[in-house]
Computed example of a mutant assay.
Amino acid sequence: MRQRLLPLAALVAVASLFSSCASKPGINVLSKNSIKKSSSSSGWALGFGTTESLPIAAPSASVMAAASSHTKDKHGMPVYAFSERNRLVRTTAYHPNESDHLVYGSSNATGTPLRYTNRVRSAAADWSFYPVGTVFRIAGLPYLYVVDDYGSALTGTGTIDIFTPTGESMNQWGRRNVEITIVQWGSFTRSKEILAQRTGYQHCRSMLANIVRQRPDLASTKGGSSNKG
């Protein structure tokens, strides 16, 4: 979670990809329980090592100073306005073989493969804080992180769960307060469409309600219901 910037063209290409995903009408959304584990041993297109060095840069003095004046969530972390792209954030980590993730295997909440490459990696968050498709960087690391997953324990907080491929790498990450920069915001519309099909679960209902509270214009958009989260 190093400071090697991607070429501008690559960053623009990634941003364009998520913009096009967010704008497609009639997206085909899988219920999360219908997402099955990949038959391959890893489940990811590119291989990865079980361990790697993750030298996190200390949050800057300006971010720390700004954080002190913010309202705090239940973990004592600052709650930010969407205009604030540089943030102090509590992060945890997860991997696909945890008991509460086994049913989903190597797929995220949108039904696409979780990512863990030398350029792009997956992350989970409350989608009413970080809507699906949000792209961010962690200070000190070269990767782009993409919010494409969620978790019930994250609901109502600004905590971001970083995807890792193994229990060893999950434990190596642990829990860290890091400085992040939002590269591109995701789509509340797409988040709402997905969550509206999973209202059988409290955490999905909570995220959905908070999205509609912030974006009342989305209350009238249609979405089916499901008892699968």
Rank of each mutant, 00 (worst) to 15 (best):
R90A: 07
A93L: 10
G133S: 04
Q172Y: 11
T155A: 14
R119S: 13
F136E: 03
D126L: 02
T164N: 14
R87T: 01
S99L: 13
T166G: 09
P96Q: 11
I160R: 00
A93N: 12
S83K: 12
S128F: 02
L102R: 15
T117H: 10
Y150D: 07
Q172D: 14
T157A: 05
V146N: 00
R115Q: 14
S122I: 08
R119A: 14
E98C: 04
G151R: 10
R137G: 00
Y143R: 06
S128N: 02
V103K: 14
T92P: 07
Y150P: 00
R115L: 15
E168W: 06
N108M: 07
G167D: 11
V132E: 04
Y145S: 04
S169V: 02
N97V: 05
V147L: 03
N86I: 03
S128R: 05
V103G: 10
A109Y: 00
N97A: 13
Y104S: 14
R121C: 04
R137S: 08
D161M: 00
D148I: 03
V79S: 01
A124C: 06
E98F: 01
R175T: 15
A123E: 07
G140Y: 06
N118A: 13
Y94K: 07
V79W: 04
T91C: 10
A123I: 00
A125R: 03
L154N: 09
G111Q: 05
H95G: 05
T164C: 11
V79M: 14
S99V: 12
G174E: 07
R85I: 08
D149P: 04
L154Y: 07
N171V: 09
R90Q: 13
T91M: 08
R176K: 15
Y104C: 13
G111C: 07
N97H: 14
Y94W: 07
A153T: 10
N86G: 00
Y104W: 13
L114W: 00
K74C: 02
A125V: 01
R87Y: 00
Y104N: 12
T166Q: 11
F163G: 04
S99H: 12
G151V: 04
Y143A: 08
Y130P: 01
M77H: 11
T112V: 11
G151C: 09
G174Y: 09
D126N: 08
W127I: 06
G156K: 08
L144C: 05
A153M: 05
